[in-house]
Simulated scan of single mutants.
Amino acid sequence: MKKILLLLGGLTVHFLAGAQSPTVISAKSQPLKLKGEAPKNLPPVITWQSPGTDYLQVKQPAFTVSACVQSFEALKEHRVVVNGKTFGQQRGMKRLVCGEQVSQEVLLQAGDNVLQIMATNSVGTTTSTVRHIVYEAKKDTVIGQKRVALIVANSNYEKHPLKNPVNDGRSVREQFEKLGFTVTLLENLKLRETDQALEKFYSELDSNNVGLFYYAGHGIMADNQNFIQPTDADPSTEVDARYVCYSLERVVARMKTANPNGSNLVFWDACRNNPYRSWTRSAGQPVYTTINPPVGTLIVYATEPGKTASDGNENGLFTSELVNNIKEPNLDIFELIDRIDRGLEKRGFQQPPYIEGRLRGKLILNPVIKP
């Protein structure tokens, strides 16, 4: 029989022509080298490139995993597995001197991350050795971005008081804090206090944050604008509202200026019993108007134009569904809104949320990589 010598990462494996090859190949740190005729019935061999060591510490959540894969048979696919979750499952790979390259950007969770690569050809699948990456996340960051939230909840109006906004504010504060937001909750604000709170909020935003503003209370549509109604505001005409209330359009514009490259999100649970509908509008006209927010900003209203939002028992209906669903892992914001809509429908309420604007890419409020 003809003898074949295979050098695999410093490990010498002998073959005899016609004899069965080993069923397990353990990939080491060196590429595969051959002396003699190459055998045709081996699974792939994986050589790590990045991370280059068994343990690595990083300060950013995004990391590019790469390796070189050698195979005598045509490769079918490869996959990168982080904490038991697959990132990428591809067939086309770049040719290198050592074989074909696996390259995949992955999202790390805070703390220890376990990495492996799997490659498959017609003979079988090879799983790489394990590598660990420790992501040292800052306390105020989630997926690399600072998260800042301001909650304003107004209930104690002299005229037309509301039952649930303060309860709503406290409920969403608890959830936002669990999602990594630095949260400020303020209740029953007058106009001057509203202005001061928002100015402080804008100053806390940087150029690439997730900025979130949540408002529960009376909202007014006056002079083709949407307004937060402070607890001391009692406008007698639409023109007066411009001077004694705070414009939502102004909130959106200032968030965009303070956080131009990040994601700005507004939850507006303010389409409630509007005491001023008799000013100039007939009963069928909407209680707020379109803002057309800039790219990077999304406004989520509690209901559609022309409809009022129910106050509920302990929480407003919109906020109760928001609290129930926002904790769900790995939901994109639009999936979250759909969950809220379906939850209200199941409860028998025709109160679909209404959105304006668009973000850059996905916004996942509760990103979780499951082991």
Rank of each mutant, 00 (worst) to 15 (best):
I228E: 09
L7F: 10
V183I: 02
I25Y: 05
R250N: 05
Y288L: 09
T182Y: 11
A253R: 08
R95T: 01
T289V: 09
I337Y: 03
K138Q: 07
T127S: 13
N226Q: 00
D168M: 00
C68M: 10
S263H: 15
L96Q: 09
E136V: 10
Q109G: 15
G296I: 06
E37S: 10
L8G: 04
P31Y: 08
P352N: 08
P235F: 01
V69I: 08
Y157F: 12
A270V: 01
A197N: 00
I46Y: 06
V295P: 14
K178Q: 13
E199I: 07
P230N: 07
L265H: 09
I4H: 08
S263F: 15
P235I: 05
N154K: 00
N167W: 02
P22D: 07
I133N: 05
W268M: 02
Q350E: 14
I228M: 06
N164R: 03
V210M: 03
F267I: 00
I133M: 09
T141A: 11
T120L: 05
A302Q: 04
V172L: 09
G284L: 09
T12M: 14
P235G: 09
E356K: 00
L7S: 12
S71Q: 03
D168T: 04
Q145V: 07
T257Y: 10
F267P: 02
A302L: 01
K146F: 08
V80D: 07
E193V: 09
L115M: 13
G52R: 11
A38F: 05
P230H: 08
T237G: 01
C68E: 14
L162V: 07
Q104H: 03
I46N: 01
V295S: 11
P353N: 02
N259G: 09
P286G: 00
I337L: 12
V166Y: 06
S26H: 12
G312Y: 12
V300E: 03
V287Q: 12
Q229F: 12
Y243T: 06
L7Q: 10
T12N: 14
T129M: 13
S207D: 14
S278N: 09
N154D: 06
N224Q: 01
Y55W: 14
K33F: 03
T23C: 01
V148G: 02
V152I: 04
W48P: 05
L317I: 12
R358A: 13
D338K: 13
D232T: 08
I133E: 02
T308P: 05
S282V: 12
F349Y: 15
D232P: 02
Q145E: 11
Y301E: 01
S282N: 01
D54Y: 13
N325K: 13
L107Y: 10
Q285E: 06
L162H: 04
I25P: 01
I364T: 14
N167G: 05
Q101K: 10
D332E: 12
I46F: 02
T184E: 15
K3N: 11
I364C: 08
Y276W: 01
P293Q: 03
P352R: 08
S282T: 11
K94A: 11
T231F: 08
K362A: 15
A222T: 00
A149I: 03
C98F: 01
F349V: 15
Y157P: 02
N292Q: 00
G10C: 03
V368C: 11
F181Q: 03
E187Q: 10
Q60P: 10
R277D: 07
L8R: 07
V102Q: 00
E335C: 01
R358M: 13
V295T: 14
V172F: 01
M221I: 08
